[in-house]
Amino acid sequence: MDKPVNNRAWFLVLPVLVIVAFSAVIPLMTVVNYSVQDTFGNNQFFWNGLGWFQDVLESDRIHAALGRQLLFSAIILAIEIPLGIFIALNMPKRGFWASLVLVLMALPLLIPWNVVGTIWQVFGRVDIGLLGHTLAALGFDYNYVNDPIDAWATIIVMDVWHWTSLVALLCYAGLQSIPDAYYQAARIDQASRWGVFRYIELPKMSGVLLIAVLLRFMDSFMIYTEPFVATGGGPGNATTFLSIDLVKMAIGQFDLGPAAAFSLIYFLVILLISWVFYTVMTAQREAL
């Protein structure tokens, strides 16, 4: 499988480099530029060194947002990964039903994110939403507008609704690649259901699970539109995650310096945690 070495392949990669340079490198350099400068307005900037970074690292507000963000991503992964695996194991394997189930499951993935927020904002309202109305009729004191716990529950259920199918579809693709002979061998050995899962299905799914965990981590860590539309970051700051806080700072208050420093730290945190997931999970995969 050795590929030939050919440095002229760079010419094929060049268009990608140009376009990504325009849409990623230049903007990121602007951010770096802002992060080390201060301004009095009038486009007059002066060097501020690492001051903004220090401010951001010491800011209670950002610490709180980071804490909420980490908790949110942890809850999301803890629910969606096992649930996704469980759903994948129960999906029909072939035929018309398999196609129909695939299409229906993929539906939430294709809804614009603000519409996802709108759907759940409406669905959870006590006066006109089915969920809120039903919960109220059952005697629960449910109100996502005023109660932080209810707001969190709504956002988490919304994200589970939105993205569990992704995990399930990935695991399903992994399961489909297992030859029937493996299951027959397991039956001859009278392996338990758990044994089949642990020694046949889980190792075969480990590759796609790595992708699922990484994607779900990255996207839940960057979540903006859905909670912004559903709860607006409230009540108070209860569901203000990092992106919401950042947009508030950068575009709402136009605090360029701190927002830029915040951006860079945010990006680095994502890269770091993704790298940790990747390293740990690849190591575990080899151990399976």
Partner: peptide
């Protein structure tokens, strides 16, 4: 490096994009 761009939060890029 291309992979890292998939990890970049759009919120980070919103303001610089606007200015660019």
């Amino acid at each position: 490096w291309l992979l890292t761009n998939r990890m970049a939060p759009p919120a980070v890029f919103a303001l610089p994009f606007f200015q660019l």
